[in-house]
Design a protein around this nucleic acid. Structure first.
Lengths: 242, 242
DNA sequence: AAATATTTGTCCGTATGTATT
DNA sequence: TAATACATACGGACAAATATT
């Protein structure tokens, strides 16, 4: 019995889908039991049964729920992937170390001029050439994050080929004379994803994306890599240990 | 010239409003200049001019843009508040230390039984009584985050009154014999906000909320406080220094 | 085994909101 | 401003699969 706003530009069925996803995530609808029936849900949300059905259909499509005629609707999967974030964050290792089968996909690479922000982060002149490498991280066959990586070309020319060959930024950096590195800082924001990212992450329009921008520095404290990672917010949680 | 999905449950005008908000946030539309004209924007997004007008109207309502007849559309405010997150995170201090005038508002308090999650976090038995304190953080007159704070009643009975009087959890804890504390861990997620939180944060339905759940421990490493903070994602960025 | 209730799935129609031309 | 197409939301009726009595 709660109100959904019709004039927000977000359809009722999508607001209800979001609410159900939350209720599953926080355990209000346990994974073992069936969800309340469509009529019960409709009265709970104060909408028609068909509207609830649209919401459920979207969540079935998404893989969160499974509906069986005559029996009920059940939670198909519930847990979020857990990503440690800290001084020694390496996404490929985070994926590999987890309970799921992780995989890195090399998307593209190229040369870009450094904008103000990246120039400052990497301590180069604005306009200096940067190597850009785009990677996609998969877990259990689902895309989890897309990452853009930028390196100063002056120092890391040819790194794209090594990343492509090894599938790992850590390995490529080691081959280029950077035995170890760590995070200097990370900035987190959340918002609606851009269409390019939504396509890559196989998300619907309006889906939420968690963005982490970070700088890695070598043992001497010199900036090595600027990385912007976009996570499918529904599929992950970021964990900081202090 | 990009595609917007009509079957996503999110109206085109809202998708475009989200896109414009992003472009303002990352500096593509600088705060000084006027935005491109409505016709230019319409062709850029591949939609009709009327649809762009709806998007701009929503952003004007929201306070992000200002439209002047005959002159153009301008950015009214753009920067996000920056929140440091780390071992010594204290939200009230983060607000007070910044360039903006911060303020803590005491919302409510009460006693709750510990659920599984909070019991584990605070190292008490499930069902044990917890003191709950709800706080609202404002900056420049706008709500930025709502925080639920939980303390074991056995050790911190009466803390609500001290928080209410001082407006600070740090001060209240000091008065109760905890001279210092720090973060043990923080878990970050993002999603669509619940209606209760959206109301408090003065956000429209479907708006995005960044959630940080964390545990603070005392100098001996004993858990003191479980805190869940919900940020209006459009208004903040979380920054981790390593 | 049979009847009944419950639950999801499909079909009809109508009204309103959204987006384009 | 008006005409048109599509998406959204509601309401009702019934079918099909399953569970219960």
């Amino acid at each position: 019995m709660q109100e959904m706003d019709r004039r927000s530009g977000v359809a009722m069925w999508r607001q209800i889908a979001d609410e159900i996803r939350r209720l599953v995530a926080n355990g209000t609808f346990p994974a073992a039991n069936a969800l309340p029936g469509e009529i019960a849900l409709a009265s709970r949300f104060g909408v028609n049964r068909h509207t609830v059905r649209s919401a459920i259909a979207a969540l079935v499509q998404e893989g969160l729920l499974r509906a069986e005629r005559g029996r009920g609707t059940f939670v198909e999967k519930s847990d979020r992937l857990r990503f440690p974030i800290g001084r020694r964050t390496r996404f490929s290792e985070a994926l590999a170390g987890g309970p799921v089968s992780g995989q890195t996909r090399y998307l593209a690479a190229g040369i870009e001029a450094a904008d103000e922000r990246k120039a400052q982060a990497l301590d180069v002149d604005p306009g200096a050439p940067l190597v850009r490498i785009d990677l996609l991280y998969m877990a259990d066959g689902l895309p989890v994050s897309v990452a853009g990586n930028w390196f100063a070309q002056e120092r890391f020319d040819g790194i794209a080929g090594k990343v492509r060959a090894s599938g790992s930024v850590t390995v490529a950096l080691r081959e280029m004379g950077v035995p170890d590195y760590h995070r200097a800082w990370t900035v987190l924001t959340a918002g609606h994803g851009e269409n390019v990212d939504l396509d890559l992450l196989q998300l619907a329009a309006g889906a939420i994306v968690l963005t982490a921008e970070a700088v890695n520095v070598d043992e001497a404290g010199r900036p090595i890599q600027f990385v912007r990672t976009r996570f499918a917010a529904d599929r992950v949680e970021l964990r900081l240990e202090s």
